[in-house]
């Protein structure tokens, strides 16, 4: 089949043109590449459009917002919105709380999910069926059903309003959406072949050595996925955070809050801050600035971790 294809690339011959447009064994053709890029760019546009809109709006002054002719490019870069949004959300104090309430539980959760997933994929222990049942049930049952009982337990333990209300369940494998991360680890671990474990065991590895030297290097991607997802989930949670952590009804005034909780109370706190300033009502631009502030840290984390995500994946591919 390959014999008939001329070796020299001449895009003006019939065969050459076909190869250029439709591709060959080694390379995708121009038309194929064009179609792929087109699809990717269209979807990217859908994802980027609202965020770009948000970013642009957050730089607009009040005049630009009202002016119909200003659509995409603000007449001047207005950093005042960001200044006000930082003030309204009390950024300096809130960001520390937010980091504590998202990074620590996410890291703990990933480690515990890894252990649980390994046990489920590698061993056949007694009560495994019950374990699966509980794992699925805690995932499926809406959090509303167990919210009040869980609140009572936290209250008994005296951890309402502290980091522990998030960290303790995460350390014990009961954080947000633990089941899905456990399942990711389960699937990644179950791709390890038993003969690999046998070989390691013949060389004198025990159960823990097999776990650390054989199993763990194969699930680097799962670690990064799990950490990213649970970081995002903890970061974005407002309902449970305002219930367990920043609950004002318990009486302690300096309880912890997160950026997202502040964002949900944006309007109220803005009014409180600007009381007596006359007609200084909240405009869309300041709100958008607040939203941009909330998602930027997550994007930065992803930009940094994404490199390792791809790298670790490639490394695993070589090891197999």
């Amino acid at each position: 089949m390959l014999k008939n294809v001329p070796m020299r690339k001449n895009p003006f011959s019939k065969e050459g043109a076909r190869r250029f447009l439709l591709g060959s064994y080694e390379e995708k053709g121009f038309l194929v590449k064009f179609a792929l890029y087109l699809v990717l760019i269209v979807i990217s546009y859908i994802y980027l459009y609202p965020l770009l809109y948000m970013l642009v709006t957050s730089f607009m002054s009040v005049d630009d917002l009202v002016n119909d002719s200003v659509h995409w490019i603000p007449t001047s870069l207005n950093f005042d919105n960001f200044k006000q949004a930082f003030e309204v959300m009390d950024f300096k104090n809130t960001i520390l709380d937010t980091l504590q309430l998202s990074v620590i539980p996410a890291a703990c959760q990933v480690v515990v999910c890894c252990l649980t997933g390994y046990a489920f994929s590698r061993y056949r222990f007694k009560g495994k069926a019950i374990g699966w049942g509980l794992l699925i049930l805690t995932f499926v049952l809406p959090s509303q059903a167990t919210m009040v009982p869980t609140y009572l337990i936290f209250k008994d333990m005296n951890i309402i309003g502290t980091v522990w209300a998030f960290v303790l369940p995460a350390v014990l494998g009961q954080g947000f959406k633990t089941t899905i991360i456990t399942l990711v680890f389960f699937l990644f671990f179950s791709q390890i072949s038993t003969s690999q474990i046998e070989a390691a065991s013949l060389d004198g590895c025990g159960h823990f050595k097999v776990f650390f030297y054989i199993a763990l290097p194969c699930v680097g991607a799962a670690f990064i996925i799990g950490f990213l997802f649970s970081l995002v989930w903890y970061w974005n949670e407002t309902y449970l955070t305002s219930m367990y952590i920043s609950n004002s009804s318990i009486g302690n005034t300096n309880s912890m809050t997160t950026l997202l909780v502040k964002l949900s109370q944006f309007e109220a706190s803005y009014k409180l801050l600007n009381e007596g300033n006359g007609d200084n009502t909240l405009n869309e631009a300041i709100r958008m600035a607040g939203t941009v502030i909330c998602i930027t840290p997550l994007l930065v984390v992803y930009f940094c971790l994404q490199k390792y995500f791809v790298q670790s994946v490639d490394m695993v591919g070589l090891k197999d």
Binding site: L115, Y118, A119, F125, L172, H207
Partner: peptide, 18 residues
């Protein structure tokens, strides 16, 4: 298979408590 319980220890405690 007893080793499974060692790996599962935190999760089992979590189930019992929370």
């Amino acid at each position: 298979n007893w080793y499974a319980y060692i790996f599962l220890l935190p999760w089992i405690i979590g189930i019992a408590f929370f």
